[in-house]
């Protein structure tokens, strides 16, 4: 059994940023982390690996060398192999990323591809299903429970929909499943595996080029306020006093 887990490096949600000439520039102390949905996917891959006699987990990311930290974390959590597809343009869209992943994965005969339901930063949820379609694999998304029948080579997945409604999907292997959060408790990397990861550089592969881009970002701006957005001034006590007054004025308190 070979499992491919797609992981993405994202900026921490609290990372400060500026907009400079219509593009986004992170500023210190911006830090990066593994996309939290992908952590759930990797944990699910590692749990499967532990329950199977002969199973290997490969973690793959797409991006420049600065994304190697996310692969170190993946190896620190227990991935056997880490691969980075390099050379896509900055800001490549989901189709470009999915095309690069599919071109590489096509040669590898994975039984299962797992990834997060979306990335925390871009929130598109497109790379997994696009990659599956490009590879001709069945897929499902937003999964919160997984059960593998290895004999039948069928994966049972429970997907969660709006309002918490659930649906059961049975998929023959090989297939692609994107996982929602809460399916497990992602483990922390162990020190020994992290040390090993530091000594094991990822396999770096030139990303295959997909089709010409079909859309482009023309502008990045701050969102307009949907409501008054009154920012309370002053120190903590002043803000608290003001908030109490506002709530009382509106008979909410």
């Amino acid at each position: 059994m070979r499992i491919l887990c797609l992981v993405k490096q994202v900026s921490e949600p609290e990372s400060p940023f500026d907009l400079e000439q219509g593009s986004l520039v992170l500023r210190p102390p911006a830090r990066s982390q593994m996309n939290s949905y992908d952590e759930y996917a990797l944990e699910a891959a590692l749990t499967l690996k532990e329950s199977l006699p002969d199973c290997r987990v490969c973690a793959l990311t797409v991006g420049p060398a600065s994304c190697d930290t996310v692969l170190q974390r993946a190896m620190g959590m227990g991935a056997d192999q880490v691969v980075r597809l390099d050379g896509l343009d900055d800001g490549a869209g989901p189709l470009a990323v999915a095309s690069a992943v599919a071109a590489w994965a096509k040669e590898q005969a994975f039984d299962l591809i797992l990834t997060g339901v979306m990335s925390q930063d871009a929130m598109q949820g497109a790379v997994g299903p696009m990659c599956a379609e490009l590879l001709g694999l069945p897929w499902t998304s937003s999964v919160v429970e997984l059960a593998l029948d290895q004999e039948q080579r069928v994966l049972g997945a429970q997907r969660e929909m709006e309002g918490g409604r659930r649906q059961q999907v049975e998929l023959p292997l090989p297939c692609m499943v994107s996982l929602n959060s809460g399916i497990n408790r992602p483990r922390y990397p162990t020190l020994s595996l992290l040390l090993k990861a530091k000594k094991t550089p990822p396999q770096v592969v030139e990303a295959a080029r997909g089709p010409q881009p079909r859309e482009r970002v023309i502008r990045v701006s701050l969102p307009g306020k949907k409501r008054a957005g009154l920012v309370l001034p002053g120190d903590t006590a002043t803000k608290a006093q003001r908030l109490v007054a506002i709530l009382r004025e509106r008979a909410l308190l």
Binding site: V217, I218, V220
Partner: peptide
């Protein structure tokens, strides 16, 4: 919405 919902990306289809 992009960047954790903090910015708006305007995207133009090319086809």
């Amino acid at each position: 919405a992009a960047q954790h919902g903090k910015v708006v990306e305007e995207i133009e289809p090319l086809q």
